[in-house]
Design a protein around this nucleic acid. Structure first.
Lengths: 129, 129
DNA sequence: GAAACTGTACTAAGACACATAGTACAGTTA
DNA sequence: TAACTGTACTATGTGTCTTAGTACAGTTTC
């Protein structure tokens, strides 16, 4: 379900956050659905329970998941809306990258073509098997 | 000439590298031109000379600048070409970001509009959120 | 030649984030 | 009661980044 790259410069807990958010945005983890427990996921990913807890804690503070002591963690209703507004907040990051590329001589068309290339093939919506 | 954000998560030496590369791409630092000395820049930016040396060392190993012991560091001829090819190598990074945004519900048009917005009006400056 | 610059190469130390390890406690469920 | 759940805490190890200090060799200028 999740894949951890221990060699990556991005911390493990952030990788977990990013992938959980993608699963929720994609509808693979539905609103109201229960997440794997801290201990179960730590075993599955071979990381420390504290690392999972840190990831879950941040998702909780964002309002994306809700934690119920004794019961478990659940995807909050409205999580997708929150994720979309967070995503819009990341547009400046994309703008900065685009600016860097164009300053180095990459053209607007090359950038847009690259975006179209990678987003055409993503099967987030039509999934009827 | 350069601005360091000590609160940033990106290391100081990387900030120096990025900004030097932008200055070279923009033609503000021309090929063949001499860079400020390690010690002078360390005083100007209030960082340790070792930090400057680390930045210069990486720029050197990329072939963007050349170091001559006793004389100084100079922008290498062909630096802009190298920078452009490095920039093209960063397209996957931009693709990944675009994919994340679109997976969260941001539309292709919103992304392209954001890119056009920032690249039309901003010359070479950097804008950190 | 001397002085003042240049880049370069070390070692040592501190700060900080990340991750692991272990323990403990309270709430929920079967 | 037993087995799960989240949560909190301390301690420890590790790696990167940064600073500090020293030293050496080459170049330039006077």
């Amino acid at each position: 379900m999740l894949y951890i790259d221990v060699m990556s410069r991005t911390p493990v807990y952030e990788q977990i956050i990013e992938q959980m958010e993608k699963l929720i945005s994609a509808g693979i983890l539905k609103e109201g659905e229960q997440l794997p427990s801290v201990r179960a996921l730590s075993l599955e990913l071979s990381v420390n329970p504290n690392t999972i807890q840190k990831a879950y804690g941040e998702l909780d503070s964002k309002g994306i998941i809700g934690s119920v002591p004794g019961r478990g963690c659940y995807v909050m209703p409205g999580a997708c809306d929150i994720l979309k507004s967070i995503a819009k907040g990341k547009l400046p990051e994309l703008q900065a990258l685009a600016q860097t590329l164009m300053a180095a001589g990459v053209t607007r068309e090359e950038i847009i073509r690259a975006i179209d290339e990678c987003t055409h093939t993503v099967p987030v919506k039509e999934e009827t098997k």
